[in-house]
Design a protein around this nucleic acid. Structure first.
Lengths: 259, 259
DNA sequence: TTAATCCCTCCCCTGTCGTGAGGGTCAAGC
DNA sequence: GCTTGACCCTCACGACAGGGGAGGGATTAA
């Protein structure tokens, strides 16, 4: 007849001693015997019961319900399981919906960033293109909960024309260097690009007036690729550059994330 | 300039007044202005902020993290969202696994019931069939965590031969009535069957020595259909009965569940 | 004998509110 | 002017499932 003390049982079942105390306190799992020194001793039946408890606990049942199931043999565990199953299925569905919501929110934020970015590109594209781009953005956003915030936000962050010109010429310098590197035959995955891409990344962060996380930077690469205005702009600089640049951005991102 | 008091805002956003008090207490959402009477007054900015809070809260973020995101503009919400997304995806996956575990447990329980039921059928099938059936059960169970409990459990619930004979003759009577009804041309979905099926259900419950929930009863119908020994036994009583009976059991279950 | 390692109980802490108790405020109706 | 009812406030306790630690007794190996 094996017997275990709290720590043994705790290690066996992978729970804390405190948890066993708790289960004893609420009457969910009592030791088979308590010594004169008040030590708790558990037997095989308790181990089995603990396993059952953990099974149901895993399923997200409150401890009280678990107690009812295990104590009351009239309690139909099959029905309880079926109910729990549908409960879990509902939760899983909710999570899937939340994930979709997040995806939309992420797309939204990327759109917002694109909008700010776009703000700075006003000098480049024609007004017609501008309207077209905004329509595309709207179409992409879908969820419009934050639309107002976004709009007022980016309006508040408008920059003076002088600043913008300076920044744009800085960008032109960086881009020219990148183009030259590409034309020298450098592949976009090359580590040699790191300093240049870093300059580009820093420029973007300065432009946005806030930190530019790696994810955000990779998101910008997506935008460069997925919208024709950007594609055309970069393709004009040099053939192939519109594909080369996003790859370079993303592979730099991966590298700095790993290190 | 619109202004709301706690209850208005609470109703607008679908939270409780207490929640707003709490958010004020922890500094997550303070009213734009507090009256001399200490009433809380909220403006549009607060409404917007509350919506943001609820969005992140939905995603399972702790309130403190939400506060950081919203208060610190340097906090990268895109990165936070990406992280949250993978967190949610992991949770969803966990739920799917839990559902599979439940399904296995349910199958297990059904097997256990079938075992008990089988115990009572020992008089009917030959010993070879018996072994075959047990092999099938084992194959079906897969997960063997509770095997010992099950075995000792059903052993403890063994019934005297005399009792068994009485019960089997009671079953024979019920089954004969059911067969007659079927041969009279009654469809298994007919309400007219209710009293008869009820007798059958009561017999099953008595046999198991515990309540027989509707789900368990429907599960028994599955077993009747899926195992040849039962199929053959019922087919011997009358051609077609092995299909008719499970349908009748399930449609009765549906009816009593609905009412 | 001493030190280390168990064990115990008792108590406070977490986060997100729900649910009162007890009391102030405000507008309307009598 | 007074009451009524519908608001509002603060304060405080409880629920859940334990975590963490203090303080003290028991056991055991060196």
């Amino acid at each position: 007849m094996k017997e275990w003390m709290v720590t043994d049982l705790a290690k066996l079942a992978g729970v804390s001693v405190r948890t066993l105390h708790h289960y004893d306190a609420i009457g969910l799992l009592s030791p088979v015997r308590v010594g004169e020194n008040r030590y708790r001793y558990y037997g095989e039946a308790e181990l089995l019961r603990l396993q059952q408890i953990l099974l149901y606990r895993e399923l997200g049942m409150p401890l009280e319900t678990i107690g009812s199931i295990l104590d009351d043999p009239r309690f139909d565990s099959l029905a309880a399981l079926n109910e729990q199953r549908s409960h879990l299925a509902a939760e899983a569905k909710r999570y899937r919906q939340l994930i979709r919501t997040i995806d939309r929110t992420i797309a939204h934020l990327k759109g917002e960033r694109a909008m700010q970015y776009e703000n700075l590109y006003k000098g480049f594209v024609t007004p017609e293109k501008q309207a077209e781009y905004e329509a595309w953005l709207k179409d992409r956003l879908g969820d419009s909960t934050h639309e107002k915030v976004t709009a007022s936000d980016s309006a508040a962050k408008a920059i003076s024309d002088q600043d913008m010109k300076e920044r744009m010429s800085a960008l032109a310098g960086i881009e020219a260097d990148l183009v030259k590197t590409m034309e020298d035959g450098t592949v976009p995955q090359a580590r040699a690009l790191d300093p240049l891409i870093q300059r580009h990344h820093a420029w973007v962060a300065q432009m946005w007036g806030r930190d530019c996380s790696h994810d955000a930077y990779a998101g910008l690469a997506d935008i460069y690729e997925s919208h024709d205005d950007f594609k055309q702009r970069y393709e004009t600089l040099s053939p192939g550059f519109s594909k080369w640049l996003p790859i370079a951005m993303r592979s730099w991102t991966r590298r700095v994330k790993e290190s």
